[in-house]
């Protein structure tokens, strides 16, 4: 009783059965199982690596499959729209993940510090529990009495900000080149963007080493260290993923996979990179400067 065919509308490509999702779930299970043992220092920690290997295998196969399908013209404009929207919502969810950590930072800075210092309805908290505590930011001493320091903004972090902002710029140039069919520029500038990502990560690692070895600023340095490393750390993780994404895009550009009309993957990579960039700007303002 299906409706009469209406040629105005496209047929939606529903992929045939695929083993990948199931493999991916097994991979995630092993990863989670292994990670659980890993954090406890258990003897089954190695399962984590197997899990990650399965995941990498699965994701790369999946990615390859979509590239193949895309290249063989199975994807209609409607499909591209699905992917695009999917990517947008995925990035939204990532934004909310960062929001949890930014929220923690704001809550601690604006409220908890003051409360521990005795403001609002917490005079007794200060008087009886943490009489020594001075609420400043970055903390010099945690309520528990450990000394800490804050990371300055105008050294490496400022350079890193410049790098990332510049990388957004180069990526935009590349994107325009793609639309204008300027292949050489496209490949060059995508590659430059990826390289900037690598440099950023290098500097970030350097900063961490500096923090740990010379400043004594660690994950354990009270809430300042916690928010600092968790925010910059998750950002760094995203830069890493984004850089890998860009490297693959560079290769695909070189192979001529993208057309001015149809380059969802390139757009997704670009969005992701801009998102990572914007997160950094927030980080720079709220973690480093203020």
């Amino acid at each position: 009783m299906s409706e009469q065919t209406n040629t105005e509308y496209e047929k939606y490509y529903v992929p045939e059965q695929s083993k990948l999702p199931f493999i991916g779930s097994v991979g995630l299970f092993l990863t989670a199982f292994g990670a659980g043992h890993m954090v406890q220092g258990g003897s089954l920690s190695w399962v984590l690596w197997i899990g990650l290997a399965v995941l990498v295998y699965m994701l790369s196969t999946w990615w390859a499959a979509t590239i193949r399908e895309s290249m063989s013209g199975l994807y209609s404009a409607q499909m591209s729209r699905s992917f695009r929207q999917g990517m947008m919502w995925f990035i939204t969810s990532e934004v909310m993940f960062f929001a949890a950590f930014f929220g923690a930072l704001f809550y601690v800075r604006i409220l908890v510090m003051e409360w521990l210092g005795g403001s609002s309805n917490n005079a007794a908290t200060h008087e009886f529990l943490w009489p020594e505590f001075i609420p400043n930011w970055p903390m010099e001493k945690t309520p528990g009495g450990e000394t800490t320091t804050g990371m300055g903004a105008w050294g490496l972090p400022a350079i890193n900000t410049a790098i990332l902002l510049f990388s957004s710029f180069t990526l935009t140039i590349a994107h325009h080149a793609l639309i204008e069919k300027n292949r050489a520029t496209l490949i060059q500038f995508t590659a430059i963007t990826a390289a900037l990502g690598v440099i950023f990560m290098g500097l970030q690692i350097w900063e961490y080493i500096h923090a740990y070895t010379e400043m004594g600023l660690t994950l354990g340095s009270g809430i300042y260290g916690s928010t600092f490393f968790m925010l910059t750390g998750f950002h760094g993780l995203h830069v890493t993923v984004g850089t890998i994404f860009l490297i693959i895009l560079t290769i695909r550009c070189a192979k001529g996979h993208f057309t001015p009309q149809d380059h969802f993957a390139y757009e997704a990579g670009a969005w992701y990179w801009h998102f990572v960039d914007v997160v950094w700007v927030f980080l720079f303002i709220f973690v480093y400067i203020l």
């Binding site: 908890v112 529990l129 528990g144 354990g220």
Partner: peptide, 23 residues
């Protein structure tokens, strides 16, 4: 945050480090 509080020394939910269980 729970995980890092448990195993990696962060103090999101520990007042002694400047965090807050209520957070």
């Amino acid at each position: 945050m729970m995980l890092t509080d448990r195993h990696f020394g962060t103090s999101f939910f520990d007042a002694a480090g400047g965090g807050d269980p209520v957070m």
